[in-house]
């Protein structure tokens, strides 16, 4: 018969996950030649809150997507102020994959991110404000709709407002209606805004 049995479950020698128990050694392992060793180091550093800056520093130079993924997962698990501070510069990155992964990771840290939201939404760079709005659109935070409404009322850039409309279509409630209704008046020459707000209002409905 072609089926052969090999007992992994009963093989204690197979156990091992690269955790030396020494965080300094793990930090060095983040720069190992093999991606599997870097992944193991990042996975194990998720247990050490003070490792967030080192993980973020590795993130921006890490070439392997699989290692980046594990670093992001470690940072999401740490969910710390240091993790947020390390991830925010990624919003200015030209590397689209890195930036999108940072947006997703920040979306998992609603409470820790809260103190940084105002400055993000007031950033001089409209692209950064769009990415900040993208984060808010996926943020499990009760104030997220209110922040997006403030964007509709104040942000001068049409693309930032369009991103906020998209976010409110997902998160908005009855309180969001007036900001959405008023927005086309701020951009009368942008028919897309009228269309998008109408769609968002219909989506919000009477829920």
């Amino acid at each position: 018969m072609p089926l052969v049995r090999a007992d992994r479950a009963a093989d204690p020698s197979a156990e091992g996950h690269g955790d030396s128990g020494d965080p300094h050694a793990l930090l060095e392992e983040l720069y190992a030649a093999e991606a599997s060793r870097r992944r193991a180091a990042a996975r194990n550093l998720a247990m050490y809150p003070h490792a967030a800056p080192a993980l973020c520093a590795r993130l921006v130079v890490e070439p392997a997507a699989s290692v980046r993924s594990v670093i992001f997962t470690a940072l999401i698990g740490l969910r710390s102020d240091a993790a947020v501070q390390g991830l925010l510069p990624c919003l200015r990155s030209e590397d689209v994959a890195l930036r999108n992964a940072a947006i997703e990771a920040l979306g998992h840290m609603p409470d820790v991110l809260e103190p940084y939201i105002r400055s993000l939404l007031e950033d001089d760079d409209s692209d950064v404000r769009i990415f900040a709005v993208n984060v808010l659109g996926a943020l499990a935070h009760a104030q997220a709709p209110r922040w997006l409404e403030a964007v509709l009322r104040c942000d001068p850039h049409v693309n930032v407002c369009a991103a906020a409309v998209e976010g409110l279509a997902e998160l908005g409630d009855q309180e969001s209606r007036s900001a959405l209704v008023d927005l086309p008046g701020r951009f009368p020459d942008e028919p897309f805004i009228a269309f998008a707000t109408k769609a968002a209002l219909a989506r919000i409905g009477t829920v």
Binding site: M1, L3, R5, A6, A9, A10
Partner: peptide, 12 residues
């Protein structure tokens, strides 16, 4: 038995 014993069951 031949099928049952060919598979490695274990907790994970």
């Amino acid at each position: 038995e031949a099928i049952r014993s060919s598979i490695d069951f274990g907790p994970v």
